[in-house]
Amino acid sequence: MAHRKRSTYRHGDLRRALVSAGTDLAREGGPSAVVLREVTRRAGVTPNAAYRHFEDKKALLHAVSLAAQAELARSIEAEQAAIPPHDDAGSVARARLRAVGAGYLRFAQTQPGLFRTAFVGHTDLRDAATAESAGQSGLTPFQLLSAALDGLVESGVLPAERRPGAEFLAWSSVHGLAMLEIDGPLRSLDSQQRAFAAGRLLEMVEKGL
């Protein structure tokens, strides 16, 4: 495959090219596949060129993880976009929350390498709100979840006093199932069993809130 030479990059484009190459590697093999030498080779530059934008491999991998989160956000957005119109605001709000979980689980199953990479090196919630993690809507996966929960309150489905902290309960539940299915003892579930588990989990989350 032909690679662009470094001289073809405009200001700022090299960083995007390196992140894009790293994202492709993560898609293929998870975070361990994001090797600096291979990233620069795919971007068509020398390894030293990466240090113009990233202090070290850890910094590059962190940027790739944010790009993986942005793809996760787009998976959630696609799930929400498929919700059919409905006159009942409560039904729509419930559907949007379930779509967040469904999009999350679908992404883990179809893009396991990126899913494993999406949260590498994150020490707190600051990355959950950065623009680099946002999808087409401008919202990150965490913000899409928050918006869906706010919609439950606005439609009268969820009492306002039960809203604080609901993100952490929903997120941990869905993330746990996703990890069990791609890296844990639930790897052996077939597609029908996974769909059943996902449906029951999302129902449990909604009712548990």
Rank of each mutant, 00 (worst) to 15 (best):
172 S>W: 01
119 F>G: 06
181 E>V: 13
105 L>I: 10
106 R>K: 14
180 L>A: 09
138 G>K: 11
87 D>I: 09
115 F>M: 04
196 F>I: 09
84 P>Q: 01
148 A>I: 13
173 S>M: 11
189 L>S: 11
172 S>Y: 00
190 D>P: 08
206 E>V: 11
101 G>S: 05
170 A>N: 06
134 A>F: 08
138 G>D: 09
126 R>F: 15
206 E>K: 01
139 L>V: 02
188 S>L: 09
161 E>A: 13
171 W>N: 08
125 L>R: 13
171 W>P: 04
143 Q>P: 03
152 L>S: 07
178 A>E: 05
111 Q>V: 05
174 V>E: 03
126 R>C: 08
182 I>Q: 08
147 A>Q: 15
143 Q>K: 03
162 R>N: 14
194 R>G: 14
90 G>V: 11
170 A>H: 03
92 V>K: 09
142 F>P: 00
140 T>E: 11
146 S>M: 06
181 E>W: 10
203 E>W: 01
202 L>Y: 04
163 R>T: 12
157 V>Y: 00
173 S>R: 15
153 V>G: 07
197 A>T: 12
183 D>S: 11
174 V>S: 04
127 D>R: 11
99 A>C: 01
204 M>L: 05
85 P>S: 14
140 T>N: 08
117 T>D: 02
180 L>S: 06
176 G>H: 06
201 L>G: 08
139 L>Q: 15
195 A>V: 02
156 G>C: 12
107 F>K: 12
86 H>A: 13
99 A>T: 00
139 L>N: 08
85 P>G: 01
180 L>N: 12
